[in-house]
Design a protein around this nucleic acid. Structure first.
Lengths: 345, 345
DNA sequence: TCCTCCTACGTCAACGTTGACGTAACCGAG
DNA sequence: CTCGGTTACGTCAACGTTGACGTAGGAGGA
């Protein structure tokens, strides 16, 4: 069997020859354009079928005036992360609806890699890109945007103007989580966050501060731990926090993997029923744990749908002012966030 | 700001004009081909940079003799499923290494949709496709394959010849799981499986039968439940099984979501420490549950890497006989699979 | 000195498709 | 019967790029 098949793909010319018409007429039939009589249409269709003809979209988009490739780029941090993949899926569904396919890539939160992928995408002349911006400066994104590429940022807003974005209620929901803990009597609430370069981390931290302030609590700086990228760093930080002379009675973990790391530590010390925990971002089976993990759940499909809507509107020529859409997240109470402080001091 | 930027992309012609050379020379410089003097190279590079020139890969691949698009298609069941997305990520990493991007789509185990996506991919002239075949007949896949498109199937083998595939040790690992349960004294081991049309389900069921036979146990047909697509159906089935007059003392759940459904039921009835459970396919946090869930863990990155290796070899013209690569899975003992039968009868 | 070979370019056409435009045949109205 | 309009095609060139091939000029050998 020929894996690298040598057969030339049939072209419009082949179909035209078989149907005894011009290639232009074949083009009309294939694209359902008027100007072809019924019997010619039938003849062309039959010829195309018998040759196994498939239109070549790359040639077509090269020649077409709108220059559309019917392809968009999606550049997320890590496609194997449940958050990212759920987002991708939501975008994909909306894209399919428009007959558009998705070129997907993982930037690993690395600006260089993100830039390279962006170049690869633009070399393929995608109609637009949906990007989860890597932390730090966004020069490459801005440059691409200024070249005219329709662009929507998700999860994190642009640091430059003129570009749509979709984010969640990071600050408000974080504040709500902290207020929930405070209302139970917690006075020592720790913050464990991801990289400080990430906008979401900053926003969630701000929400934490607002929550403390609103509850009349004072910030204990030693209870704030940031730059915890990955569950392992989170574990270390959680251990250190719990080993303090005056340890926190509640933890607010501001990211997925940070929550997991903190959970591991609590379980290892058998403190999961003593120390309250609220995490940002839901994860599968959070309800099956003992206790169930209270989380701020983002509306991931909602984020993806909105991002897709925006990018397709822009591709279709919508020139209204840039939008910053905010999709509300919700506090899901499952137990771990409803633990009262054990021994008030 | 112009979201739908009207600026025409600079072309080789523009660069050539500015550098006062022919487009062919620009082509040589851009592609690092010999036949351009050092100062011309510098002039062209400068012109390209100042115009912000970006090569148009679609035009290039149209004209090139090898006709490569440097893009492959990936068609999985559901990109938001952790198994699928981990697989995608592994393929993507290998692809990036070759300067290749990935067009990704979810077929939802629907043959029609899979066929449509396949057509979309081939219209974009992808260099090859990696497919998780939808259940049932694979006519569309076979047809595409016979047109000469390099193709590798993952997770499920082709029902037609001449095509590479990569699968895991479904049967052997299932047998091992059942033998593990039998060795603890379990005689009533239930099987809960996904759609019977799926090859993996069939293989895992066969492994279950082999395990029973090898342990000298007789099959009780009422303990076999299949076609459980999704956690909800699995819940119903598990409930019914546990309500039998002579309920199983151990469950072998042959798929991800089926395991989750069964777990929910066990927990709801507070039997998670009484009834043994082994699931096929690992999932995040399986170790954090009480008890930890014993699973057959597939080597997902290994599967993805192998699939990518095969597809790129074929794209590069490897015409050796088709391969069926098998990546070993491993039994991960965490507790739920090590529960002995409570009251032997 | 003349011829050959090589280097560094340029010219031209073609990849598969479609926009712009041309034209022959036909139709209905005046 | 003529004229304007419409329908159903066809012709041609161009999208951005590269393969095939041509050529001027210089280097080098006999």
């Amino acid at each position: 069997m020929d894996q690298a098949g040598e057969r030339r793909e049939p072209t419009m010319r082949d179909v035209a020859a078989l149907a005894k018409v011009s290639t232009k007429t074949v083009s009309r039939v294939i694209n359902d354009l008027p100007g072809a009589g019924p019997e010619v249409v039938e003849r062309v269709r039959a010829a195309a079928r018998s040759l196994g003809y498939r239109p070549n979209l790359t040639a077509s988009s090269l020649r077409r005036s709108d220059r559309r490739s019917a392809t968009i780029g999606v550049l997320f941090e890590d496609l194997s992360n449940p958050f990212d993949s759920a987002l991708l899926r939501a975008v994909e569904d909306r894209a399919r609806h428009n007959g558009v396919l998705v070129l997907a890539g993982s930037s690993e939160d690395d600006r260089t890699l993100q830039g390279e992928l962006l170049v690869s995408l633009s070399a393929r002349r995608v109609d637009g890109v949906v990007v989860m911006a890597a932390g730090g400066h966004q020069d490459a994104l801005q440059q691409e945007r200024e070249r005219g590429t329709p662009m929507v940022l998700v999860d994190r807003p642009p640091t430059f103007g003129g570009t749509d974005c979709v984010t969640t209620t990071n600050r408000e929901s974080s504040r709500e989580a902290v207020l929930q803990l405070a209302s139970l009597g917690h006075r020592d609430i720790a913050f464990l966050g991801d990289r400080r370069t990430l906008w979401t981390s900053q926003e969630r931290y701000t929400g934490y501060l607002e929550g403390l302030a609103q509850a009349g609590l004072t910030l204990r700086e030693e209870l704030v731990r940031t730059d915890l990228h990955g569950a392992d760093l989170a574990e270390t930080a959680a251990t250190e926090l719990l080993d303090l002379d005056r340890p926190p009675s509640a933890l607010f973990t501001a990211q997925n993997l940070v929550t997991v790391g903190a959970m591991r530590v609590l379980r290892a010390r058998d403190q999961q029923h003593l120390i309250a925990l609220i995490g940002f971002d839901d994860f599968p089976l959070a309800d099956m744990l003992e206790p169930g993990i209270t989380v701020v759940r983002q509306d991931v499909p909602g984020l993806g749908r909105k991002a897709a809507e925006l990018i397709f509107a822009r591709i279709d020529g919508d020139t209204s002012p840039p939008v910053h859409a905010v999709v509300p997240a919700a506090l899901v109470r499952r137990g771990s966030g409803e633990i009262a402080p054990s021994a008030p001091r």
